[in-house]
Design a protein around this nucleic acid. Structure first.
Lengths: 237, 237
DNA sequence: ACAAATGGTGACATAATTTGGCACTATTTT
DNA sequence: AAAATAGTGCCAAATTATGTCACCATTTGT
């Protein structure tokens, strides 16, 4: 097994099990005790905070907050990078579209090497609960399906979304809309869609959407609305 | 020099120079011709599309679209991941906030290893023009400053943004607003802000904003507007 | 106090991998 | 024809990774 893969396996195992001993890890990754210890040391050099307790009942423990305490790259910075990518792709405007043909790892490379580590670690620290790798992903997909579909549709114009919606009064209805826009009103995200059944725009709080499903929509069209600079529909909000 | 670092250096050099010869690369990364050729071969195995021309004036060329043609991980998929992270952090709601303590590289690890490569490559392909590493980053910062500020403010409530705005009629004005929301109406992004001078909401096309500057704003407050589920201000759009 | 379980280090031989050098081929441009 | 270039196969040398073993330090349970 590759060094890098082994390191990944160790980190993954520690996250999953919470606590593990050197011998258990060695057994799990199929390497010797000494090698695992060397790996642990290497991971620490990379900035992982790994607690260790000796004696009976002891073991290794990966501090889940290690990224927050050690990050030289601030969260807003990383956040900005992530959002930037989205924005570049979304606007499709120069110089953004040119920039959008590029990527975060390239930015990684433009950063000093110690910052690269932090970015990598930040990305690495995101994990999905305590599930198995496979479940992690499917869970992730399920949770973000609404959001994903909305964006996919909004940006690519491919799908109509049908979902269950629970309104402010607790009434549950089944809806289907052509997503047209996203409104971010922190801390809430809204999906703005064209409802073909009601022949009008409707908006939905993302967190009240459940069981969203994207269905291919051949009739989809961009409802391009006159949205001139000096019309401000938000005054009434 | 590490293998991985050398691979990165080669990719970076190819992107920067557009075209380069094996010998030049060997010189640049401080390795032998043979080793560089092996590296090129390895990069091709990983999916990089590297064109080569023999003879005088020939050389190696990295196809900038290699990610689009070879990605097994679709662009929307990756896009969804990026957006998801932003969304998680933004909503601050469970289970999102829990998820937000995790990361893309962890998702990477949950993916089959061939998908990991694609994700890495996608991230790697983003690059910032043809500038030097240092300039790359500062340019990046400048370009996305408006967006960054908007989000930073919207999510953290820290800053007021002042900027030059060119409206639809071509009139340029200097504005300052407290960012309150983002509206994504593909392909355009709008910033929705509270204008303390006009005492009203105003919205601005992100691409018409120039020279944005974030200034600390001690008076900032969230203009929390009644935005009930059945009020739909978009009907009039 | 003692034994067992645990993390941690150093040394050294062995195994595995990477690298460089060389000879050679094939293609293109001048 | 000559020069410049990419590409391949082979092998020895260099480098790095790994395993084994001996040993130390700390903690916990009996």
């Amino acid at each position: 097994m590759n060094v890098r893969l082994r390191h990944d396996a160790i980190v993954r195992t520690l996250r999953r099990n919470g606590t593990s001993t050197v011998d258990a890890l060695a057994d799990e990754v199929g390497a010797s005790r000494r090698t695992v210890l060397r790996d642990i040391s290497a991971l620490r050099d990379e900035g992982y905070v790994i607690h260790s307790d000796v004696g009976r009942g002891g073991g290794l423990q990966l501090d889940p907050r290690s990224i927050q305490t050690n990050a030289r790259l601030s969260v807003p910075e990383v956040f900005a990078l992530l959002i930037s990518v989205a924005a570049m792709r979304a606007t499709g405007s120069l110089p953004f579209s040119e920039l959008a043909d590029a990527g975060l790892a390239k930015i990684e490379k433009a950063l000093p090497s110690d910052k690269v580590k932090d970015l990598r670690r930040f990305l690495e620290c995101l994990h999905i609960g305590q599930l198995s790798p496979e479940q992690d992903l499917s869970d992730m997909r399920k949770m973000d399906h609404g959001l994903l579909s909305a964006f996919e549709t909004a940006f690519l114009g491919l799908h109509l979304i049908s979902f269950d919606y629970c309104d402010a009064k607790g009434h549950e209805t089944q809806r289907r809309v052509e997503p047209q826009a996203m409104l971010i009103l922190p801390p809430l995200w809204y999906l703005v869609g064209w409802d073909p059944d009601r022949n009008d725009f409707r908006h939905f709080r993302m967190d009240r959407i459940s069981n969203p499903q994207a269905v291919p929509d051949t009739n989809f069209r961009r409802r391009h609305v006159p949205f001139e600079d000096d019309v401000c529909p938000y005054s009434q909000l």
